[in-house]
């Protein structure tokens, strides 16, 4: 059977592979080429060398958005994973109604980012109005607003992954630890977490890359107000592309830099957590 699957692999892969080439590889290569060009429409570009990259790196707003994004990614990574892990622990206890709670915590993840952004904008502004201010007037309101929003959206998703991880820990290992006299805390740190490393790797990878790539929530919640101070990298790229005549190539160059950055961070993060994974 396995042999047959191997033999027909090309056929089974073909549809997805074609889609991947059309939807990813070709636009990706075109994107890299365009980052060295001046263009108005993507099919009609003129090569200009690395000037786009120079403009991109000289852009102070881009540098600000970089630090803002890094900070956001770190904090959202911590908040989301700690809370999701805690929830997963709580909801794998033998309690009544855990399935209902799992469903409820997972549900926000089913709503699109733009919609969430606008809904939370109304909520936050409704509260801030009482204090004579608004979300768009202070970059840190926007920052914490985004943290709350993505936590609310993503904790449920990460929780499901952690629950799956927790459930796959063999009972005999836990039992053995208990018999050996390990207390709850020791069991958590010495048994559960090491056994959970594969889940932690994937959850951390997802939340750190999501943090960097955040776009729709940023666009709908703050739109970069005030004066681009709450603009994250993806939104900055988008605004560069459309904000000025002739800056399409610079936006493209920023996008390539952004891609390299996200890949680099993703790989480093995968390496460092992978090395902590244990064999069951």
């Amino acid at each position: 059977m396995e042999k047959a699957i191997k033999r027909y692999m090309p056929i089974f892969v073909l549809p997805t592979f074609c889609a991947f080439i059309l939807g990813f590889i070709i636009p990706f290569l075109m994107g890299i080429w365009l980052s060295f060009c001046k263009f108005t429409t993507v099919t009609d570009a003129k090569f200009v060398g690395i000037s786009n990259y120079i403009d991109a790196l000289n852009d102070t707003v881009f540098r600000h958005s970089f630090w803002y994004t890094v900070l956001f990614a770190i904090i959202s990574l911590l908040v989301i994973n700690v809370l999701a892990f805690a929830l997963a622990m709580a909801l794998t206890q033998k309690l009544r109604g855990t399935n209902i709670f799992r469903t409820i915590f997972f549900m926000p993840n089913l709503i699109g980012g733009i919609v969430l952004g606008y809904i939370w904008q109304l909520i936050f502004n409704g509260i801030l109005e009482k204090y004579q201010t608004a979300l768009g007037l202070n970059e840190w309101y926007g920052f914490w607003g985004l943290i709350i929003l993505v936590s609310w959206q993503q904790i449920g998703y990460m929780m499901i992954i952690y629950i799956a991880g927790l459930q796959s820990i063999p009972g005999d290992v836990m039992e053995a630890a208990q018999i050996d006299g390990a207390n709850r805390w020791q069991r958590l740190w010495k048994v559960t977490i090491p056994m959970m490393m594969p889940s932690i790797t994937i959850c951390m990878f997802l939340s750190v890359t999501n943090g960097f790539k955040l776009f729709d929530q940023n666009l709908s919640l703050t739109a970069g107000e005030p004066s681009k101070m709450s603009e994250m990298m993806a939104l900055n790229i988008f605004n560069t592309f459309y904000g000025r005549t002739g800056w399409e190539g610079v936006g493209q160059a920023k996008a390539v830099l952004f891609f390299i950055l996200v890949v680099l961070i993703g790989v480093l993060q995968l390496r460092s957590t992978r090395s902590k994974e244990v064999q069951q």
Partner: peptide
């Protein structure tokens, strides 16, 4: 000169109003 200019003035006007 650009959309960026308009956005810059708009943001500053909003902050000033507050």
């Amino acid at each position: 000169p650009s959309e960026e200019w308009k956005n810059g003035v708009g943001s500053a006007l909003t902050s000033y109003a507050a």
